[in-house]
Amino acid sequence: MTAGAPPLFSGEDIACQRGGHELFRGVGFALWPGDALLLTGPNGSGKTSLLQVMAGLRPPSAGRLDWHGRDIREDLAAHAGRLHHVGHRTGSRAILTAEEDLLFWSRVRGPASRQRCLLALARFDLLRLKDLPVQALSSGQQRRLALARLLATPADIWLLDEPAVGLDRSGLASLEAAVARHRGSGGIAVIASHTPVELAEPVRGLALEQSGERVPEHGS
């Protein structure tokens, strides 16, 4: 991490409103290639919303986010092209087989090859299950399928929302290895996770407090 160079992905004074009340305010971060950011905070503190703001899915109610110093909202499609977002739900369609589903999402996203998909499935120990329909997989296996998508097509930023939910020992190990390799090759990972995920140092932290509920002041 070269201290002098400007951050690759940064954000200042970010605020987010949902359902009329404010989740958080004044949030900032700065990340360089190879960095990891661990989001912590109690339930309802807005971790998921912050990840959605980082992905460009949700407009912040204040503040801005930059990639290479340029506001990501200038070209949201390009920003979406450089990131993977793994949310609570896997995004896999029950009737398709694991391989078909992974192939589909990798073909839609970027330069994809069947070889790379099979390698991704192997990395998450799903190769022997590749011809099973997704509905036949356990929730842990479906979670691994969603994570396999990270490896099937390249992306600079990984936004992972509770990625370790439902993973067993070996699944967690595969995830940790994948994140380490991603950071090694200059990628950035932002992870919100209650279950502990072992990340190589240095790890930046961002703690979101209990959602500060300020009632918009009204004259009578």
Binding site: A55, G56, L57, A77, A80, G81, L83, H85, G87, R89, G91, W105, V108, R109, G110
Partner: peptide, 8 residues
């Protein structure tokens, strides 16, 4: 969400 975030 993935479709909204896709390059298409």
């Amino acid at each position: 969400v993935l479709l909204v975030l896709s390059p298409v």
